[in-house]
């Protein structure tokens, strides 16, 4: 294991920002810390960067403890949401700053800066000041600055949040491309589940200072462990075991034997609608989203969200039958009242 965080704990007064959090990052892996604001993901990133002190636990890089190492000696690269380029330095000086601190000869710095500017597709701006660049350009330079020193780990703190939607999508792909080609182990903090799904090899989903679930994007989407993950990663329909037993008994087979409350989670696109005169459900409303339709259906178990691709199968007010395949139903732990950690 390349980077390991074990039992990291951080409290601010009476508020527990992180409660015995453990995560692992492998060499070359792109890991996303995903969660709502205040879940502790940024605190965790800052602990790893060395910008915040650990209250308890341990962080190791290649089996060496980092706790006593100040941020400047860790050799990590970091990109902030606010770009945070040095306003008094030109783009080239910004990118070369880390190398200058390491006393690299200026000719080598210049060559490296040129190379990095090519990499982030901004070869023309070397002599500009950060204030003369757009947000997206500034963030590209910030990325170049972070990777200039060949960081052992790249840390990205919501790097795309301040950008508008189009730039965000382009830069997202570029970050992924750069990370793949350089194989830098990367940890990115985000609250945007779509971003995490698109970028990550592994998503670590956090809430209330604990890791709720860690796994591949497919794992988290298709096999959420708790109600929180199911609701945070896209939309889902959650049905109680009693309702399932009454209306969809086939789905009960996969229900875990446990005393805790589990809910059946069914993604909107996994519900099939079959128009029928004697249907038990009614289409209440429909919104057209281009490539798909989102329907709200009144069913015996309450309102359900359904998404269908292709041509619309029915109209508002139509009676329908609902069909759910048993492999499309995931049983999730109901952690609505109390966050619960699921062992990875």
């Amino acid at each position: 294991m390349y980077l390991t965080v074990r039992d990291a704990t951080k409290t601010y007064g009476t508020f527990t920002a992180l409660d015995r959090v453990s995560i692992e990052i492998e060499k070359g892996e792109f890991v996303c810390l995903l969660g709502p604001s205040g879940c502790g993901k940024t605190t965790l990133l800052r602990l790893i960067a060395g910008l915040t002190e650990l209250d308890g636990g341990e962080i190791t890089l290649e089996e060496v403890a980092l706790s006593d190492l100040p941020a400047r000696k860790r050799g990590f690269g970091i990109v902030f949401q606010s770009y945070s380029l040095f306003p008094n330095m030109s783009v080239a000086e910004n990118i070369g700053y880390g190398l200058k601190i390491r006393n690299v000869p200026s000719s080598e710095i210049a060559a490296r800066v040129t190379e990095l500017l090519e990499l982030v597709k901004l070869p023309q701006v070397a002599n500009k000041l950060p204030g003369q660049l757009s947000g997206g350009q500034q963030q590209r330079i910030a990325l170049a600055r972070a990777i200039a020193v060949d960081p052992r780990v790249l840390l990205l703190d919501e790097p795309l949040s301040a950008l508008d939607a189009k730039v965000r999508a382009t830069l997202r792909d570029e970050i992924r491309q750069v990370q793949r080609s350089l194989e830098i182990p990367t940890l990115m903090v985000t609250h945007d589940q779509e971003e995490a799904l698109a970028l990550a090899d592994k998503i670590i989903c956090m809430n209330h200072g604990i890791v709720v679930q860690a796994g591949t994007p497919e794992d988290l989407y298709h096999r959420p462990a708790t109600r929180f993950v199911a609701e945070f990663m896209g939309s889902s329909n959650l049905l109680s075991a009693e309702d399932v037993a009454k209306f969809y008994p086939d789905l009960l087979a996969t229900r875990p034997a446990s005393t805790e409350t589990y809910l059946a989670c069914i993604r909107p696109e996994q519900i099939e609608l079959i128009p029928a005169e004697d249907g038990t459900a009614t289409v209440r409303s429909m919104s057209f989203l281009g490539n798909l339709q989102r329907l709200e259906v009144d069913s015996p178990t309450g309102p359900l969200l359904v998404e269908t691709h292709g041509r619309p199968c029915c109209c508002t007010g139509d009676k329908v039958h609902l069909s759910i395949a048993s492999q499309d139903c995931t049983w999730v732990l109901d952690d609505a009242d109390q966050p619960k950690a699921i062992p990875a």
């Binding site: 100040p70 941020a71 990590f76 970091i78 945070s84 306003p87 700053y97 601190i101 390491r102 600055r145």
Partner: peptide, 15 residues
Amino acid sequence: LPPALEEASGSLGAG
């Protein structure tokens, strides 16, 4: 002065 500027400088190795 945004704290992130000093943090960025620190992460790049500056004391």
